[in-house]
Design a protein around this nucleic acid. Structure first.
Lengths: 161, 161
DNA sequence: TATTGTTATACTCTATAACTATA
DNA sequence: TATAGTTATAGAGTATAACAATA
């Protein structure tokens, strides 16, 4: 038999006798949980531009790398190379990227942003700043910076290189 | 026309003339990207136990709260209350949680872990430690701690309370 | 009239198998 | 034989609409 609910945390002040235990979870799980939250918010914003987080990631990555090929792009944005095809197709149809055969290895397609792609990115970046402020607004400036640095480093050691 | 690919980053040493620009992205996007990576790894591990990240999250959350109701649980694990039904159903059928009507508000179902649920959690936690070491192994101990603290705080200010 | 939980369903994302063309 | 890209498909995950019981 279950007695009373213990989830009305906001009714208790810090250190009160009945204050519920902190929600404790590992960093890996929290990363997955908060990542889903962040993804949801990005997806909602990007949907207004007719895009998905993968499209955004691809544009952003190409803006950094200038040129790359599909397999590498897929790796960096975190999709299986087989599923990257439709992502790249979509952006190409919209005229935001161009896909040309690599002369040295004709199996490969070199991918790069078009002029229009670069223009679109600027708009998305501005919209993205709003999402980020909303998601991380509860943190101090120092905390946001520290989190950004740590995530950037984690990205390097897990997916990049 | 696209000239050469610029993605063979590992061939260049730091500061070399042709070294590719760092992959720069905002904290919100990185959080979504790395969250998906973490989720994938958790999902793979949990599949061996016939579970999903949501099931894990529900068990972990109940272990912290002891008792709660479905809406609150759904909020904490990040699923729509309507979709939390099948998550709770699954765990109840496995005998890991028990669902009893709240006497004070008979619309509500009080949810709590069973003895067996607590035992299963111990096993999952051990398996989860392996996933976490794998995911965060490239960071130093201090970095892992700092990241964990920041994620925990972000969880508080975004979804909890 | 609002809230808790439920059922049902459509849609998106992700994972995977099988193929073509180049190397 | 291995790799880059493609096509196709099934399953998991997510979002949404409509409803019953209770407040």
């Amino acid at each position: 038999m279950i007695a009373d609910m213990a989830d009305e945390g906001d009714k208790f002040v810090e250190g009160a006798p009945d204050s519920p235990p902190e929600l404790r979870a590992g960093a890996g799980y929290l990363l997955a949980r908060l990542g889903a939250e962040s993804r949801r918010r990005w997806a909602r914003m990007l949907a207004e531009h007719g895009m998905t987080p993968h499209h955004y990631g691809a544009l952003m990555t190409l803006d950094n790398l200038k040129v790359t090929h599909q397999q590498r792009l897929a790796e960096l944005i975190g999709v299986d190379p087989r599923n990257a095809v439709s992502v790249v197709d979509f952006l190409e149809r919209r005229g935001l990227i161009e896909r040309t055969r690599d002369r040295a290895d004709r199996r490969r397609h070199a991918i790069a942003l078009t002029e229009e792609g670069r223009a679109v990115i600027d708009g998305l970046r501005r919209a993205g700043d709003g999402v980020e402020r909303d998601m991380l607004g509860g943190l101090t400036g120092d905390e946001r910076t520290a989190l950004h640095d740590l995530l950037h480093r984690l990205f390097e050691v897990t997916v990049d290189r």
